[in-house]
Design a protein around this nucleic acid. Structure first.
Lengths: 205, 205
DNA sequence: CTTTTACTGCACCGCCGGTGCGGTTTTTCA
DNA sequence: TGAAAAACCGCACCGGCGGTGCAGTAAAAG
């Protein structure tokens, strides 16, 4: 019961690393079980097929990401009462967190799954879609709260602005991986922060 | 001689669609030759192995992308002499181009290759890396030209700003694919445009 | 009309995803 | 402590795929 959980987690840890560096289709069950030192039968005891592994991987990933985001912006809110400044602090914390990843961000499963869409059945794709829509809703709420206090300097759609947070992170991860410079992701988040500042902070002069 | 080129292009067209929707590892040579109505021997006449297909795909993709970017910003420059306004027009044109893609952006090979890094040898990865660095150089030149005329409202690193263009496009593609809303990519490019406006355009009041 | 190009056909190898099932060890909990 | 449930192992088998090698051939170019 407890042991099974541990083995399952181990399989998923190994699979996640492989999927993020080779794609889902190129990740063989054979290599996963070899690294986990388990038999193929053992693997299929935990996951009835590869698609179930995909679903489990994505769900676990999304849960930890949500927890990290909650934690990060909660901490930021404790550092400043004002919604705008709290969010700016949150972005700074996020940037620092990304910069502290020793060998760069390992990659986002949401992005991988997008570029592997044909490999998954509808429900896995739907989980992915709804996760991104939750991110949209999360940041939309933040920006509406900010806009209630600070009138924006440009007429922007707040849904698009909310999406921009995810866009920058997803794009930043790709860029970091492509040029092999982990700092690019952290810098891009700071660029987003610069935009939010210019958009909502009253001009100082 | 001419016939061979056509077959090669056909194989690459089929492969590119498959790679962008399933990843490189999950794209089988078998399915490519089935769709192209050719034999496996015929395939290996054109590409000595799968890695050479990968290289050819990437190189062709990068060439067409560069041509599209050249064309787009050249057209923009013809519409306005000022570097800032020309670039803002360029972003608008880019956004409209993305919005006009009937079933959304098919995906970027650079991003796919990032999330499939372990599948390719060093030289393919290096081609990918240098392509992104060329994008950086391209937009860096643009922003330096703009900054020579318009002092930026915030102290930003121009290399990071240059990377932001690619970041927004890469991230926007992922977001569009994830939520299955082609317009998201076009909107994100307009968000970038909004930032550039706030960053360089003198405050109007 | 010969050379080059662009293929076809076939045989073969080893790996992989996946299925099925029977047996065994380990853990849990009553 | 001991039975039940959980967590595996072993093995056999299937079809598909990446890839190699090579001999032969149709078509286009010169």
């Amino acid at each position: 019961m407890r042991k099974g959980r541990a083995t399952r987690e181990k399989l998923m840890d190994i699979a996640e690393v492989a999927v993020l560096s080779k794609g889902f289709g190129a990740t063989s069950i054979e290599e996963i079980i070899a690294e986990a030192e388990i038999t193929k039968s053992g693997f299929f005891y935990h996951f009835k097929d590869k698609n179930e592994l995909a679903r489990a991987l994505l769900q676990r990933y999304l849960e930890t990401e949500d927890r990290i985001l909650d934690n990060l912006f909660d901490r930021a809110s404790e550092l400043h009462d004002d919604p705008l400044h709290a969010f700016l602090i949150g972005l700074k914390l996020m940037s620092e967190m990304m910069a502290d990843l020793p060998s760069g961000h390992p990659g986002c499963l949401v992005a991988t799954y997008c570029y592997n869409e044909r490999l998954f059945d509808r429900d896995v794709q739907e989980i992915n879609r709804e996760a991104v829509l939750r991110w949209r809703a999360r940041f939309l709420a933040v920006f509406e709260e900010i806009a209630a206090v600070y009138p924006p300097s440009d007429d922007v759609d707040f849904e698009a602005l909310a999406d921009m947070v995810s866009t920058i992170v997803e794009g930043g991860i790709v860029m970091s991986k492509a040029v092999r410079e982990p700092k690019v992701l952290a810098e891009q988040i700071m660029m987003l922060r610069s935009y939010i500042k210019l958009l909502f902070l009253p001009v100082q002069n």
